[in-house]
């Protein structure tokens, strides 16, 4: 069996895009299946005649957070609603996540509705950079909206520099962790000269990929740039662009904007 590491090449990007398109089209947690995204706060009502989220075919329910525990209450009965798990309720699915007191409820239809396939710029190797992360000492933890519009704790870990269109740009990198594991992502949320024309106005996300050599370098492949979920559905709030992460030149690589989603996202630095 041939040895090898993850192929960081055009075929790998094609495969990732195909996987993502399949997920968008068929997954029960596709952004195209989302009907509503609602902060729970002191409690919300959903279902037939629900004040916060009216849903036909579901008896009126109330979602309440008490002492860090979520419950679904209807007709004097209640059941726990676990976080970070897709729960079937009548013809819908519910997914609650976020820190206590800031819990967000996503309500999904049974299947994605009219998913738009994403469109991409042709793969362009000139937008693939080998970069080094210039670390910061502060490692400030801040709350930001992730690609899915849900608030997460993110650690400021440093910057990377790229030369695009003859101009060097320094981009901030935040580490966003996954609960309960040792995994995390090094994310860059950036704007560039294609926004408002070919790409989503609020900006796009891209990950830093660790180099195969393990020598501390990273791969920054803008062909892997992807839209925040607010580009797919106006149910999702859009992350505000990250301060300083603007590249004046157009980065004609990665995901384009196919229309739909939030039409006028806020464009102001966080």
């Amino acid at each position: 069996m041939a040895g090898g590491t993850q192929a960081q090449t055009e075929p790998a990007v094609s495969r990732e895009r195909a996987e993502f398109q399949d997920w968008l089209a068929h997954s029960p947690t596709s952004p195209f299946a989302v009907l509503a995204m609602q902060p729970i706060g002191p409690g919300i009502s959903i279902g037939d005649g629900g004040r916060d989220v009216p849903l036909t075919g579901l008896p009126l329910q109330r979602v309440v957070e008490r002492g860090n525990a979520l419950t679904l209450e209807a007709n004097g009965a209640s059941r726990p609603l676990p976080k970070n798990r897709l729960i079937a309720v009548g013809p819908y699915h519910l997914f609650a996540s976020g820190p206590a007191g800031h819990t967000i409820l996503l309500i999904y239809a049974a299947a994605p509705k009219s998913p738009h396939p994403s469109t991409y710029f042709p793969y362009d190797p000139k937008f693939v950079f080998r970069v080094h992360l210039l670390s910061t000492d502060s490692n400030r933890v801040q709350r930001v909206l992730g690609p899915d519009g849900i608030e997460v704790d993110a650690t400021e870990v440093g910057t990377v520099s790229v030369l695009i269109g003859g101009v060097e740009s320094r981009l901030r990198v935040l580490r966003i962790g996954a609960a309960g594991t040792e995994e995390s992502e090094l994310e860059i949320y950036f704007r560039d000269g294609t926004n408002d024309k070919d790409t989503y106005p609020a900006g796009r996300f891209v990950n830093l990929l660790p180099g195969a050599s393990g020598g501390g370098g990273y791969l920054l492949d803008f062909n892997r740039s992807r839209n925040p979920f607010c580009a797919y559905s106006s149910a999702f709030p859009c992350p505000a662009p990250w301060r300083g992460n603007s590249v004046r030149a157009p980065i004609r690589a990665g995901e384009k904007y196919a229309g739909g989603g939030g039409s006028s996202p806020p464009v102001r630095p966080s």
Partner: peptide, 12 residues
């Protein structure tokens, strides 16, 4: 592959 709500998690 396992599936999350932020996209597919796939590893060759």
């Amino acid at each position: 592959r396992n599936v999350g709500n932020r996209g597919p998690r796939t590893i060759p």
